[in-house]
Design a binder for these strands. Structure first.
Length: 303
DNA sequence: TACCAGGAGAGCG
DNA sequence: CGCTCTCATGGT
């Protein structure tokens, strides 16, 4: 077939690849000059955005690019999503600041495992944990000549056979037993990840929250980022900050009330709104870190 | 040094 | 329930 190729160009509109790949939904993308390198399923891929198109390069000749189109959600009409945002000032500001930000559609196990490792961690640290996991326990994938080795995300079955200390060595600390037990339950078929997508969202959430280390927030991340449940609205510290400052004027509001507010106010398409608020708070509205005082005598004096 | 990071679970009243 | 404490690790 003449359409077989290692490269392909996809026309896009309103697709901010940089924002999307760096907005804390996925943790394996690395920037290399103007492009992004990552692994999706068993495919090494390099992506580059030119404004009105996304260019993709893989390591092997392909005729079927559905895996990539699905992951990037290339067929989604973003405007129809943005139109469903609440018509208020905070959302207008976030929308203006994050134009082109998208939600990905990730593999459920990878997404679940990554977010189990995410609790009270900063994004760079989550990236470090995930990359250690993949380097040590993921199946190698083909890469183009001259490129660094890459691995698929390790399967639940493989992780299920490890020891807790193996996972702790990947710097995930107290999350290690959570990930290990969750991997064992998924590998044993006690939780059917593939089946969750066909369930009502509340039932799917309930199933996910049976897993150790998976509470409301992480369950919502998986429901949104892996299954595309548009009503899932992960309420984390950044979104709490956003809701308090933008909708409650810094009044003391309890987490429970924010969760109820978000479900009621943002409704069945709140997931996208959440990502816009999250990204807006992390980038534009991020409080400037206090500038370090430069002390000449600040040297590591190890006696 | 002390504090915090995209939380969850256990133990209390 | 609702609150508080703890969990491991790296960065500032």
């Amino acid at each position: 077939m003449i359409s077989d190729s290692k490269t392909k160009s996809f026309p896009v509109q309103d697709y901010d690849l940089d924002a999307t790949l760096s907005s804390g939904q996925a943790f394996r993308w690395r920037r290399l000059e103007r492009s992004w390198i990552g692994v999706i399923g068993g495919h090494w891929v390099r992506l580059e955005s030119s404004g009105d198109a996304i260019f993709a390069e893989t390591a092997e000749v392909l005729s079927d690019w559905k895996w990539l189109m699905d992951y990037l959600q290339l067929e989604l009409d973003l405007n129809s999503v943005l139109q469903r945002f609440p018509d208020d000032e905070p959302m207008r500001v976030a929308m203006g600041a994050c134009r082109g930000l998208r939600l990905l559609r990730q593999d459920p196990w990878e997404c679940l495992a990554a977010f189990i490792c995410s609790s009270t961690k900063q994004i760079v640290q989550i990236q470090q944990i995930i990359s250690l996991l993949c380097e040590r326990y993921g199946e190698p994938v083909n890469v183009p000549p001259g490129c660094a080795p890459a691995q698929a995300f390790p399967s639940a079955a493989f992780l299920a056979g490890l020891r807790e200390s193996d996972l702790r060595a990947c710097k995930m600390g107290f999350r290690a037993p959570y990930l290990l037990q969750s991997a064992q339950r998924v590998a044993a078929g006690e939780l059917d990840l593939a089946g969750l997508g066909q369930m009502p969202v509340d039932l799917a959430r309930e199933q996910l929250m049976q897993l150790p280390g998976v509470g409301r927030k992480i369950a919502d991340c998986v429901l949104l980022f892996a299954y595309g449940f548009q009503s899932a609205f992960p309420v984390d510290v950044w979104v709490i900050k956003a809701l308090r400052e933008l909708y409650f004027r810094r009044r003391q509001v309890k987490l429970k009330r924010l969760q109820r507010f978000s479900a009621q106010y943002f409704g069945t398409h709140g997931g996208y709104a959440q990502q816009y608020l999250f990204h807006y708070m992390r980038t534009v509205a991020r409080p400037k870190p206090p500038r370090r005082r430069i002390k000449a005598e600040t040297k590591n004096v190890k006696n």
